[in-house]
Amino acid sequence: MAVENNRHAQHKIYSQHAPKMLSVCRQYLKDVHQAEDVMITAFMKVFTGLKNFEHKGSFEGWIRRIMVNECISHIRVQKPIKFSEEETFLEGGFNNIESQLSVEDIQFLIDNLPDGYRMVFNLYAIEGYKHQEIGKMLGISEGTSKSQLSHARKMLQEQINRQKNYQNGTE
């Protein structure tokens, strides 16, 4: 029904998926209003391209992919992202800390990452894409994607350590 531009059906889909999709958009964009704008634009694409949905995967996964792509293109339009081409990356790290971070803390940590790091970290660690796929999506090499991820991890680890030290100092 939503394919035939039935507004009631479209609203139903929107109200079912919008809260989760706004969260996805928020992972990539620091400003929640900006994230909402991008989400609306992505929903437009969802409804206009609904007849192209091939029913192969889950409907939510299809919408989510549209949201992620819309966020990436929005960030890339806003300002060109500079990915450092150095392909040396650190293994491990960021693993040996007991996880008591709230989702707001996690979002805060991710928000503090530069755009390039944040995108690669989200795509790899949260969305589950491979480095090859990330490279194609962002127009970078697989090695660059790996190096971006290692830098993101290192930066997150530093932030967590700093936060931990701050908490220990205050206690």
């Binding site: 507004r7 929107y14 994230a35 909402e36 437009m44 960021f94 709230s102 660690a125 949260i126 480095h131």
Partner: peptide
């Protein structure tokens, strides 16, 4: 380079999060 325990924790927490869009969002989309 596999996703570690912390990243798995991040993923679960972020995927389970929901953010309610503003009331005007649907009107704009409409």
């Amino acid at each position: 380079m596999e996703p570690n325990k912390r990243e798995e924790d991040f993923r679960i927490k972020l995927n389970s999060r929901t953010l309610q869009p503003s009331e005007t969002a649907w009107d704009r989309l409409d």
